[in-house]
C-alpha cells in the first residue's frame, strides 16, 4: 500500500471534515466533494498495488491493476457528481429565500427550549 496515497487520503479527509463543520452550505458542498475524493482514493488503495490497465493486456493477469475498485470508484464519482449539483440547487434556493446559504437550527426545538426557560424562571420567581 502506497504511503503517499494514504497520506493524501488523510489530508483530504481532514480538509473535508473541517469544511463540512461550517454553517454555509457552499463550504459544506466543497467539503463533501473533497471527502468524496478521499473515499475514492481509499477505495483504489484498497484494491492492491497499481498495474497496467485491466483491459489493455488481457494475457498477463499478474501485472494488471485490480478492476473491481475502479468500477466502484467510477460509480461513486458519478453519484457524488449528481449530489453536488443537488446541493448547489439547494444552496441557491436557500439564498433566494433568505439571502444567504446558512444551515439553520430546528425552529421547533428552539421554541420548546424557550418554553422550558420561561417555566424555570417562573418557578424561581
Amino acid at each position: 500500500m502506497s504511503i503517499a496515497l494514504l497520506v493524501t487520503v488523510g489530508g483530504l479527509t481532514t480538509v473535508g471534515l473541517y469544511l463540512i463543520t461550517a454553517r454555509s452550505l457552499s463550504r459544506i458542498l466543497l467539503g463533501f466533494s473533497i471527502l468524496g475524493h478521499a473515499a475514492v482514493i481509499a477505495l483504489l488503495t484498497a484494491g492492491g498495488p497499481p498495474g497496467n490497465a485491466p483491459l489493455a493486456d488481457r494475457d498477463s493477469a499478474s501485472d494488471i491493476a485490480n478492476p473491481v475498485p475502479q468500477a466502484l470508484a467510477l460509480t461513486a464519482i458519478v453519484i457524488s457528481f449528481g449530489l453536488t449539483l443537488f446541493l448547489l440547487a439547494l444552496a441557491r434556493r436557500q439564498q433566494a429565500l433568505t439571502g444567504d446559504d446558512l444551515v439553520e437550527d430546528d425552529l421547533e426545538d428552539k421554541r420548546i427550549a424557550a418554553r422550558l426557560q420561561t417555566a424555570s424562571t417562573e418557578a424561581t420567581a
Partner: peptide, 8 residues
C-alpha cells in the same frame, strides 16, 4: 464509502 474501502 470509506467503510466499503476498509472492508475491501
Amino acid at each position: 464509502l470509506f467503510g466499503v474501502a476498509f472492508v475491501y
